[in-house]
Simulated assay, not measured.
Amino acid sequence: MTAPVFRFAPSPNGELHLGHALSALTNQDMAARVGGRLLLRIEDIDVTRCTPEFEAAIRSDLAWLGIAFEEPVRRQSEHFALYEQALEQLKADELVYPAFMSRGDIRAAIIAHEASGQSWPRDPDGAPLYPGADKHLSARERRRRIDAGTPFAWRLDTAQALSRLQAPLSWREWTSEDMATTTEIAADPRQWGDVVIARREIPTSYHVSVVVDDALQGISHVVRGKDLYFATSLQRLLQQLLGLAQPSYFHHRLVLGPDGRKLSKSQRDTGLAALRQAGETPATVKAMLGF
């Protein structure tokens, strides 16, 4: 019988903090419960912000916590050609379109809409859904704009994608860390609208690269924070469209700061390295997180 496969997948665009430690330790603990394997994936498709120095710091922090992973470590930046194949499949199936609206165009469309007294729909992260004014451009006009160098991103035609499904989408969610029971969760990709699948300069996005990697690495259990709970709906849709295997999921609690928000690298929340320098030990960090 094949052993379950778990993964911890940080982005090397900042230092790991307590929230990352919780996720890594939860993956380690759940993998140990079922005799599973634990992989480390470096999600570095954002080549402008991700650095080798941050990756080295991640490895150092994880080693300090006593978390061991199988080698070799997968780096997404080394597999852009593979993600582009997935994009080309979606293009061939006519499920994506080049979206030319700039942020200013989007903002103007939303302001005009809300001037009528109607609110504009937003995704689970609070970002406005894409207006899609250019969704029905002719192939000739799309090519003319692309050839002219007009900036664009590839967006998923979510309504068209959902119309191709033969059955409702759902995913299996573990209800607790002891993995005693699961529940079936109905997926709702519509809440994300027409999301960015790739950009002209980067032939992938987080959502595409993560489902491709999970399938290629044989990930059977995706264990991550509740901040990615709603993203599962969209990723289940992509798995179905691309013919990829479906893992099971567990979305663990988040570590919150004093102001009640989740910890964030962009907000420069205290990193594990700083805690180590302040005299904390792996044992005290684990105690802070309930391990």
Results as ranks from 00 to 15, higher is better:
134 D>H: 09
134 D>G: 04
136 H>F: 13
136 H>T: 13
137 L>R: 08
137 L>G: 05
138 S>N: 07
139 A>R: 12
139 A>G: 10
139 A>D: 07
139 A>N: 07
142 R>S: 00
142 R>I: 03
143 R>F: 04
144 R>M: 10
144 R>I: 09
144 R>L: 06
145 R>Y: 03
145 R>M: 12
145 R>W: 03
146 I>R: 08
147 D>A: 11
149 G>T: 02
152 F>L: 00
152 F>Y: 12
153 A>H: 01
155 R>K: 08
155 R>S: 00
155 R>A: 02
157 D>P: 05
158 T>V: 08
159 A>T: 02
160 Q>P: 03
160 Q>G: 10
161 A>F: 13
162 L>A: 04
162 L>F: 06
165 L>P: 05
165 L>D: 02
165 L>I: 06
165 L>Y: 09
167 A>I: 01
167 A>V: 09
168 P>T: 03
169 L>D: 01
169 L>Q: 07
169 L>N: 10
170 S>L: 12
170 S>E: 14
170 S>W: 15
172 R>M: 12
172 R>Y: 06
173 E>F: 13
173 E>K: 12
174 W>L: 13
175 T>W: 02
175 T>L: 15
176 S>Q: 14
178 D>H: 15
178 D>T: 15
178 D>A: 15
179 M>I: 11
179 M>T: 09
179 M>K: 06
180 A>R: 13
180 A>I: 08
181 T>A: 11
181 T>G: 05
182 T>M: 03
183 T>K: 11
186 A>L: 14
187 A>Y: 06
187 A>L: 06
187 A>P: 03
188 D>F: 09
188 D>G: 06
188 D>C: 10
190 R>D: 03
190 R>Q: 07
192 W>V: 03
192 W>D: 04
192 W>N: 01
192 W>E: 04
194 D>M: 01
194 D>S: 01
194 D>E: 02
195 V>T: 09
196 V>G: 08
196 V>S: 07
197 I>D: 06
197 I>R: 10
197 I>V: 15
198 A>W: 04
201 E>L: 11
